[in-house]
Write a protein that binds this DNA or RNA. Structure first.
Lengths: 260, 260
DNA sequence: CGGTGCTTTGAAGCCTATCAACAAAAGTGG
DNA sequence: CCACTTTTGTTGATAGGCTTCAAAGCACCG
């Protein structure tokens, strides 16, 4: 089903050596730390079923593979997606290093979603039941995760509102800001960011055409709102853009939520 | 802030008489029953701060009034909304009798949202902390509520995907099906449904113009997909429409979630 | 070198917004 | 109850946004 994928097992040392110093899931740990978690993640080590290194673009279908697992991205980039009745694909959300790709499954096992892993990604696959066991004695950790995921939910709501109501340039700008924020949460601090998304993928996320994505990006470059190098992009005055679009970051200490 | 609203207190008898037979929040109770709840709701009576009858269209602003409360709609219709940077209003979700208008606040107190109550509505205002106390001894009830709200979340995701990616006729159809479903969950079993929404409100929800809503509705009538009487509407062949749009109902025993 | 996938560009046409005006309905005050 | 104001619904003309179809340019890779 997934073509002849170059998929080799990622070596499992860090998980199997046990209670050692090198952190299991370092990116995940850093994210949770910035969400207020102080403890280490060794307690959830038993929940890790396996790890995978991804060579090529690779889908995880909700129906078939590992439908009962939770995916934590440790390296690379991923997104969740759905097919609409017409056969069109819609991209629901994007995930950078340290993100949980389908946290909803933790609380509601009937929740399913397709995940696409970009090349050069690494994921840890967790068992929800065992994770629940591990978190039972670790309420602070659980709450940190929930705070982290609430921020994601709020960010999705913000983006979705924009995608429904605003014109294409704004829609794309919001996507780029979200991508920027996702990298930021992953510890990326440079102003130039890797743009691993295809224009077709951006189209599927923003609800527009590949062609129109291309043209809109060009216009943003002309307007000085965007700079491009091969495989990279940069928002020269992101702050102004955020102010202009009323963009809010939910990751850090921003406590109040949506209104005008 | 809310104009000169005709707002009189709804008499509180049913709540104050105590552990008597007449159910507090009957519509809410029916909804939870169909979500698998068997117990009565008397245990959450202490969480009810007050009740209100609404005479005219009336907003509840996230910032000012009752920012810490949870709203349960017992009669009428309500919706939650947000203002976009341009000053445009976006309607996030709709609520029929028995619905919780801002359940997210239960888990995350920092969550805020504006709520608009249509004329002739009745709400119960609950205190989150007291509700949490009441539900601590009533895990089955809590889980029923969570199942009920998961269904809502999934329905929102489904609608949002359609609103982002599909053309206007489909967007409106999805809204009408959602409205139908919301009435259905509230115990409404007729095929003719009250359409209390303004065309401007439909526009704010579907991300289109008042004018275009009007024209699209007219076309749907011409195509035989929709029937209208003053203040009422009917989808003559809703089943076919649902199949055509891949519309899924999450309310009942449908257990599996999103994919193609 | 020829594939393959992604990007870019052009032209045509549909979809949707905007502006403006009016009809219909509903609320308001006498 | 009627006259009045205000809101909501309806319709036309026009312009711009966005999609579609088609083709060509580029980059990467075997």
């Amino acid at each position: 089903m997934a073509g002849r994928a170059v998929q080799k097992e990622f070596d499992d040392r860090s998980a199997s050596i046990g209670s050692a110093d090198p952190p299991i899931l370092p990116h995940f740990e850093r994210r949770l730390a910035s969400a207020g978690n102080k403890a280490s993640l060794t307690s959830i080590a038993p929940a890790i079923v396996s790890r995978r290194s991804i060579g090529t673009l690779q889908p995880v279908w909700a129906d078939v593979e590992n439908r009962q697992s939770i995916y934590v991205l440790e390296e690379g980039l991923a997104y969740s997606f759905t097919f609409l009745p017409g056969g069109k694909r819609h991209i629901d959300d994007i995930y950078g290093p340290g993100a949980i790709c389908n946290w909803a499954r933790f609380g509601s096992p009937e929740y399913k979603c397709n995940i696409m892993l970009k090349p050069n990604s690494r994921v840890a696959i967790l068992d929800p039941a065992r994770l629940q066991d591990a978190l039972k004695d670790n309420l602070n950790l659980l709450m940190a995760i929930q705070r982290h995921e609430l921020a994601r939910t709020l960010r999705i709501s913000q983006r979705v509102r924009a995608l429904i109501s605003l014109p294409a340039p704004h829609r794309l700008a919001i996507f780029l800001l979200d991508l920027r924020e996702e990298y930021h949460l992953s510890g990326h601090r440079e102003s130039w960011l890797p743009l691993v998304f295809t224009q077709e993928e951006m189209a599927d996320l923003a609800g527009m055409t590949e062609v129109h994505v291309n043209r809109t990006l060009s216009k943003m470059v002309d307007a000085g709102e965007l700079e491009r190098r091969p495989g990279m992009y940069c928002l020269p005055n992101a702050d102004r853009l955020e102010r202009q679009l009323g963009y809010r970051r939910f990751g850090k200490g921003h406590s109040d939520a949506s209104h005008a």
